[in-house]
Structure formats: C-alpha cells, structure tokens
Amino acid sequence: MPEAGQKKVSIRIDGELVQLPASHTILQAAAMAGRFIPTLCHFDGLADAGACRLCVVEVSGVARLLPACTTPVQEGMSVVTDSPKLAAYRRMILELLLAERNHVCAVCVSNGHCELQNLAAQLGVASVRYPYRYPKLPVDLSHPRFVLDQNRCILCSRCVRVCASVEGAHVWNVMSRGIHSMVVADLNDPWGDASSCTGCGKCVNACPTGALSEKGQAVEEMMKNTAQLVTIAMRKAVRA
C-alpha cells in the first residue's frame, strides 16, 4: 500500500478531478470518485491478475483500452469509465462467461449472492447470444467442509491468489490452458487429499460465484463473508 506523504497526481475520472498517490490504479481512483467500474477478478488486498477484462476503460490519448485494475494513474490522465463501446464489450464478456460453463442460477447455492449473476443483471444481460457450451465438469466433494463445483468457476483466480498471498498455503493453481483451464488443488488432487490445505476457507469467501462453497448449504443459502476477508487481505498487503 502507498505510504502517506507519497507524491500525488491529479487525474480526471469521467471529467471529475481526483487527486491520489501515483502508485494507485485507475480502479482506486474511480472508487474515490464514486464511479462504478465492474470487476470480477479484482479483490481488495490481492495482487491483480487482469484476467476478467471487465474493468477496461478509455483513457484519452491512448488508442487501446486499458484495464483499470492494473493501470497506475498518471498526472493529467483523463479516464472514461463507461461508454457504449465499453458497455457492449462488458456485456459480451459476461455473456461469454455465462456460456462457458454451466451457470444454472436457479439451483445454485450462491443464487442471489453471486457476483456474476449480479453483474449480469446490473449490466443488462437478459440473454446470452453465444452458444452455450454445456461442458461436462466435475464437482469435488472430497473436502470435509467445502465443495468445489467446476460448473460455476469463472477462472478469476481469486482463490489461487488469496491462498498464496494471504494464507500462504498455495493449495490452488490453474492447470491446463485455454478453454480447458481448470482450478486444481495441489497436483490435481481431490481437495480433501490436498495436504497443503489448512481448511481456512479464505478461498471460499474470496470466490465470487458458487464454485467454492461450504457444505450443507442449499440453493440461495451460500453467503460469502467478503468484507472480513478484505480486511485480512489488506492488512497482510500492508505488511508485505
């Protein structure tokens, strides 16, 4: 985290002037300006992966779109957080995610508390124009307390990062590549057999969807304790 007294820069977010330390990102600047930028892979206190690409924004003078989560602010920068093009792209990204795996909200433990579901509603995704892939994916019930349902995973890697940088256990990683990518515990072991797992549950609370959940929860019952985890992660990040 930036230290106090660090050099500040002035930038404009959708025209509004914001002053903040140079090490901050556009995403942080937008939060200060009260502007909403959608994200799925970002998690306060964790290093950003830049994976979901929902947070791309327009920066004047830059031909390319830039991800708000990993782009540091620069003096004089002028950022547009929403535009017809950005909105269209963001909807396309959400539709791609919904088509990729089996997000059957109606029977999901996270129904009603899911970041993907909520964002889709917020960004106006009422149907998916791409063909659903309907892949056959496993559900890992081997852990005594938790469930990993690959059908709901969006590969945001929040579990991977929280486990590595906050808990320090490095249980999770992503195996294979491309469309075959899959979150695995240890060396693709059943989660229950993963000797590195401390059972802390941080991954479950970091997970934006119903991919990681606690056992015994029925449809709509799985509520993640995100706020507490953010506090822990931020503290850890300050110390690091």
Binding site: A49, G50, C52, L96, R133, I154, V174, G178, I179
Partner: peptide
C-alpha cells in the same frame, strides 16, 4: 490460437472458443 491460448483472460479463452465454433 484457440489451442495456444493460455486461458487466463476471458476474451481470449472463451471468445476464441466461440469464434472457432
């Protein structure tokens, strides 16, 4: 490119899959 995509970001991972289809 679909088979060489690392799978990290959504547009490349899923977008190329849909494009291929």
């Amino acid at each position: 490119t679909h088979s060489e995509s690392c799978g990290k970001c959504v547009p490349c991972r899923v977008g190329l899959d849909v494009s291929l289809k």
